[in-house]
């Protein structure tokens, strides 16, 4: 594993986060100058609402990427939790079911990759298909009602600030504590650095991998609750675009896809960048089709910067 060429430090394994921050600032300044709306109160509020679910998913995705894996089932998990929370059942039971289903999906993904040695993309693509199928069976068309407690947690103001901001702050705080401060975070970085040497050091590699996928599913489930509340609907396929977006945000945040290098703050910068760009293109009236081309190119460029040492994952 080579350290990224830019922003080299001899003590940091935060990947390319400094470069990401620089680009975020350039884009933000560029949009502030080229459009009048970008810094307006309404637009910044929109930005927070748009970026929050992406940030939730991307932080979870980053945990898996840091182990050297990838989770393409996050979009499906978002959809399933949005469907379950809007089922006409006891709200507490619904929440318990959301948590339990995310746990099961995470464990299955982790075991498929860690114990069975299935390629992460194939393993999580399979669970993704299964989970989306279950969600669509439960609710073929969008509908249902969001429980009252959840409704209050989205779309309101707290201390004069949008409540979504607090979702984001909480997610970042959890991400930072997990990756920078906790033993589990260290072990996640270690197996991303070298699985065999981590094993030699006595780290339980399989357990750590499973936990990483579980954490990722939990973050995705939280994003599902958020989205269900925001659109006041249970929609089984609401999350699917977030799979690729979360991978793009993680890459833009300077997390290395070989694993082991990256940071929660970098993921935040990646999400901001992706959010600013899509918001900015809307403000500048760029057609949605062109936007799709741009986000695809962004992923390609970001991945090229974090090029893998070996082919395959």
């Amino acid at each position: 594993m080579k350290l990224p060429a830019l922003g080299i430090s001899t003590t940091s394994r935060k990947g390319g986060q400094n470069l990401s921050l620089l680009i975020v600032l350039i884009v933000a300044i560029g949009l502030s100058v080229s459009t009048q709306e970008f810094l307006s109160g309404e637009n910044t509020h929109n930005l927070v609402v748009q970026i929050t679910p992406l940030l939730l998913v991307a932080l979870g995705q980053a945990v898996v990427v840091l182990t050297g894996g990838l989770d393409v089932s996050v979009g499906a998990v978002i959809g399933l939790s949005a469907v379950i929370i809007t089922l006409p059942i006891d709200p507490n039971l619904a929440l318990a079911l959301v948590v339990a289903s995310a746990l099961v999906i995470g464990v299955v993904n982790g075991l498929a990759v860690g114990a069975l040695g299935i390629h992460p993309i194939i393993a999580t693509l399979s669970t993704s298909t299964i989970v989306t199928g279950i969600a669509l069976t439960l609710r073929p068309t969008p509908g249902g009602d969001v429980p009252l407690w959840l409704d209050r947690l989205v779309g309101t103001d707290v201390f004069g600030l949008p409540v979504e901001l607090f979702w984001s702050l909480a997610a970042i705080a959890i991400g930072l504590a997990l990756l920078q401060r906790s033993r589990l975070g260290l072990q996640i970085h270690a197996i991303g650095g070298s699985q065999s040497n981590a094993r030699l050091a006595g780290i339980k590699v399989l357990r750590t991998q499973v936990l990483a996928y579980v954490i990722c599913s939990m973050f995705a489930a939280a994003a599902g609750l958020f989205l269900a509340s925001r659109i006041s609907d249970g929609d089984a396929i609401v999350g699917l675009p977030f799979t690729l977006m979360s991978i793009t945000a993680v890459a833009l945040g300077g997390v290395q896809f070989t694993g082991g290098l990256g940071s929660a703050t970098g993921v935040l910068f990646g999400c901001l960048l992706l959010g600013f760009l899509s918001n900015g293109m809307n403000l500048l009236n760029v057609s949605p089709f062109l936007q799709s081309i741009v986000s695809g190119l962004l992923l390609l460029i970001a991945i090229a910067f974090t090029r893998r040492k070996t082919i395959g994952i």
């Binding site: 401060r181 589990l184 270690a190 650095g193 981590a198």
Partner: peptide, 28 residues
Amino acid sequence: EFSLIENMSVAESIFLGHERVSGGLLRK
């Protein structure tokens, strides 16, 4: 062949597998 991991710091390498923690958080 070295058993160290390249993205770990010197301190982390020395303590990897028997980290000093309180409540799951590292006592850095």
